[in-house]
Structure formats: C-alpha cells, structure tokens
Design a protein around this nucleic acid. Sequence first.
DNA 1: AAGACACTTAGCCAGATAGCTAACTTATAG
DNA 2: CTATAAGTTAGCTATCTGGCTAAGTGTCTT
Lengths: 110, 110
Amino acid sequence: MTNQLDIVFGALADPTRRAVVEQLTLGPAAVSALHDGHDMALPTFLKHLKVLEESGLVSSTKKGRVRTVHIEAAPLRVMDDWLKRQKDMWEGRLDRLARLAEALNEEDST
Amino acid sequence: MTNQLDIVFGALADPTRRAVVEQLTLGPAAVSALHDGHDMALPTFLKHLKVLEESGLVSSTKKGRVRTVHIEAAPLRVMDDWLKRQKDMWEGRLDRLARLAEALNEEDST
DNA sequence: AAGACACTTAGCCAGATAGCTAACTTATAG
DNA sequence: CTATAAGTTAGCTATCTGGCTAAGTGTCTT
C-alpha cells in the first residue's frame, strides 16, 4: 500500500529537498545552479533531485548538456487536501463536542 | 540541520502513521483500539506511535494499564504554513510573469 | 581536435527504519 | 491469589537512505 502521499511526504522530509522546492518556486533552474550552495557531492545531490522527480514534485528537461528543473504544483495540492481533510475532521469533532457540552448544560439546568 | 519539518513530514510518510492520525481526528483512542485493523505485531505498531509522539503530532497519557492517545494540531499547522508559503511564492512568480508578458505586449504594440 | 563543462552511472559504506519474536511488568478481573 | 489483559523492553534482521569516489557520456568552446 505505497501511495502517492507516502512518496511526497517522504520527499519533503529532507532539508535539501525542501530547499530545492523552495528555490524552484522562484522559477526553473539548471541542476548545477540548484547544486550551488549545497555542501555535498553532485551525484549525491542528483539523487535528491531524482527523489523529487519520482515524487512528481518536480519535472525536468534536458537541452544540450544542461538539465533544467521545474516545480510541479499538483503534489503540493494533494498534500494540502490531505491536511485540510484532517483539519475538517478535527474541527467537526470539536463542534460535536461543543454541542454535546451545550446539551448537557441544558439538561443540567432543567 | 534537522528541523521540525523533517520529522513531521517523515512521520507522515508512512500509511500506518497517517491512518493513525486520521483515526485520531475522530477523537482520542487507546493503543489497542488504534492497533486493531493494522496487520502488524503490537511492538511494531508501538514504534509507529513513538515516532508520531516524538514528532509532536500526537500525545498520550497512561491511566491504569491503558494508554490513551490524542492528536495535536500544532505540527499540522506548521506544515500547512510551509505549504502555503510555497504556494504564495509560486503564485507571486506567476504574477510577475504575467506582468512581464503584459509589458512586452505593450512594447510590441508601440 | 582537444579540453572543459554539465551531468550521469556504478559501486561502496554507515546508519536509520520497519518488521519480527520472546520475555517482562503492571493492573484489573475472577 | 492467579490468570488475563494492556503495554513495554530487548534484541535480531532485512531493506532503505544519504553520503562518498571514480570513471563515463555527450556537448560546447577554443
């Protein structure tokens, strides 16, 4: 049962990969530009990019010897939806509790 | 540089743990109640609960021999804020692109 | 044509993760 | 007071993860 949320949450559970996503919200960038400022060997960094790409958070195209990487909004929305669903459930439950408390109060004053 | 987002995203990158969070939005529950329906040994399941608790997504208290687990909203909000920040950046960029396109259009028709 | 540039592939390693069983500790129920 | 129920602790294993170096493949630049 490995669904997309596993992969997307997993992809973002790493500061290097989150930093890449953050940087890409400002616009597409080449692999080496993204790599600048990350203190790790290029092949290591490339693995991170691969994880991001496999998660769908990012896509890339190669032209000549340069690969350019772009952010993809869809997976962020999927996560956002999940979070919102939890929030709604949670708040729905709080509402029900509030109504219950009110009902008990009524009963109390009867 | 291990920040809270690493840990929270990591905690949610597993279907068992997400299922627990989902279930807890409906209200607190005992360990064994949470364990029901998950096809894994109890000690394994307990490790998942520990990960959730260490991430702050969940807290628990023990009374007699029963441990009751509750959801905590704060870490969900932290994630939500991060997502929103990315969305804002992303959209800000799209706006700038749109304005740029417009400006180029102006120039074109001059 | 030669060299530099921008990745890419292969392979190694240490530590973390997710699973298991077996054995232990309290608490409650009978 | 013994048995059962609810967790807990300890320790083992297999796989995944994130890091590295070394060497390879195309694509410019000179």
